[in-house]
Design a binder for these strands. Structure first.
Length: 406
DNA sequence: AAACAAATCAACCGCGCTCTA
DNA sequence: ATAGAGCGCGGTTGATTTGTT
């Protein structure tokens, strides 16, 4: 193309902000139009710098295979990665003799061929974990997947969309907000509900920050691994997919089992979820004698975070009126639902319905009958029951899959 | 048994982030 | 500081399977 074929500024703006189809039209137009308008922009530079800026195709599409993978392709990919690893996905297909783009290879590997992938039906515990984490993290499937070893984010996402979401909806719970559809936290509900929502939001933000911190530490540890140093030997394993040593919200719920028999005492969690080397807990959830949930966050873990422990009182985190509780209980038949602790108003409802004397499933029924009444001015006795309920419920959700907690 | 609907899930697409030169 | 490459993520699609009439 000659330098004389220059693009008018307006055309440039349109070109840069348009889709590929429009760009092609513009290029077509330019190829037939005399460059009557003077301008300073060279088309060659445009096409080079902006046509694919930030959105370059992952590979040359022409001639590349799409769609389902054949066993032969799988074998090629497996063999290559086993021998060479996957340094660069873009370069991999050519080296492996595959007519696929690197992206497709990466997806096939991470979602299907990876040897550590666990397939088959999701366990009760896994379902509970997904629901809990989804309530906390939303559609952050990769973050959720880090808590479900050997499950891919894609698999979890699919399972959520095809099973769990529908089940929640069927039970009258908004799968997006995890709140009761009929008793949502609207502006007309009490302030405590708003506080609960705010606190949960705070927890979610905290968890997000923690995940980001872990990701950062992961990157740093990889760098350290490349150049081992004495300190690196003591660095915490930060790959959360291998069971993070940090106590996140999920672990807090699960870890609450530890002192089930004396729920009003202070709890600290030192359990090592993965059975790996014992590492100091970076965060922990405690139930103090004043019946406050104390969310302990190691001061040096998150940059810019408040160094003080985050303390959520029961009433800050979880309190809804009895109407909401009743609404939430309606339709709950499935045992796994008892594991929905800690999330939104569903969690709140559960918490208020559970006592020492009743297991979670009984709680649902009782609440429907209105036998478990709670006033907004909770008594100390209720507080005790409340935390007993929390711990009981968390305990009930544990399965043999969980490592024994010391 | 056939036709249709619903469910499932592997794979794709496009966006945005991070890293590097 | 910036552009570009590479990668990961989340949303979506569509082929296949399963269930229902």
């Amino acid at each position: 193309m000659e330098n004389s074929e220059l693009i008018p500024p307006v055309m440039l703006m349109i070109y840069c902000s348009s889709s590929v189809a429009w760009r092609l039209l513009i290029l077509l137009y330019l190829s037939f139009s005399p460059s009557g308008l003077s301008c300073q922009f060279d088309l060659r530079k445009i096409t080079h710098h902006t046509a694919f800026m930030g959105r370059s195709p992952c590979c040359e599409k022409i001639g590349l295979k799409k769609g389902p993978w054949t066993p032969e392709e799988d074998q090629k990919l497996l063999a290559f990665i086993e021998e060479h690893g996957h340094g660069s996905w873009r370069a991999l297909p050519a080296k492996a003799g595959l007519q696929r783009c690197g992206k497709s290879c990466r997806l096939r590997w991470t979602n299907y061929l990876r040897p550590d992938i666990k397939r088959g039906k999701f366990s009760l515990q896994e379902e509970q974990t997904i629901i809990q984490l989804h309530a906390l993290l939303g559609n952050r499937w990769s973050a959720i997947a880090t808590h479900l070893p050997n499950r891919t984010d894609n698999e979890i996402k699919n399972y959520w969309n095809t099973h769990l979401k529908k089940r929640l909806a069927k039970m009258g719970i908004d799968p997006v907000t995890h709140k009761s559809i009929s008793g949502t936290l609207t502006g007309t509900t009490n302030n405590k509900s708003a506080k609960a929502a705010a606190s949960l939001s705070h927890m979610a933000q905290w968890e997000s920050a923690r995940l980001e911190a872990e990701a950062r530490l992961d990157r740093e540890s990889k760098i350290r691994t490349a150049t081992p140093t004495p300190t690196a030997l003591h660095a915490q394993p930060t790959n959360v997919s291998a069971a993070s040593p940090c106590l996140d919200v999920l672990h807090a719920w699960q870890g609450a089992k530890i002192d089930l028999e004396s729920p009003t005492s202070t709890l600290t969690f030192t359990e090592n979820n993965s059975g790996m080397l014992p590492t100091p807990r970076t965060n922990r959830l405690e139930v103090s004698e004043s019946n406050s949930v104390m969310w302990h966050q190691r001061s040096d873990e998150l940059e810019g975070e408040d160094n003080d422990w985050q303390i959520f009182s029961k009433h800050q985190v979880l309190e809804l009126d009895s109407k909401e509780r009743e609404d939430d209980f309606i339709g709950c038949e499935e045992p796994w639902f008892s594991g929905m602790a800690g999330v939104g108003s569903g969690f709140t409802s559960m918490m208020f319905g559970v006592s020492n004397e009743h297991d979670a499933s009984e709680c649902w029924g009782e609440s429907n009958n209105g036998q478990t009444e709670h006033s907004n001015q909770a008594s100390d006795e209720e507080d005790k029951n409340y935390w007993n309920g929390v711990l009981h419920m968390v305990n009930s959700e544990l399965t043999p899959q969980s490592p024994p907690l010391v």
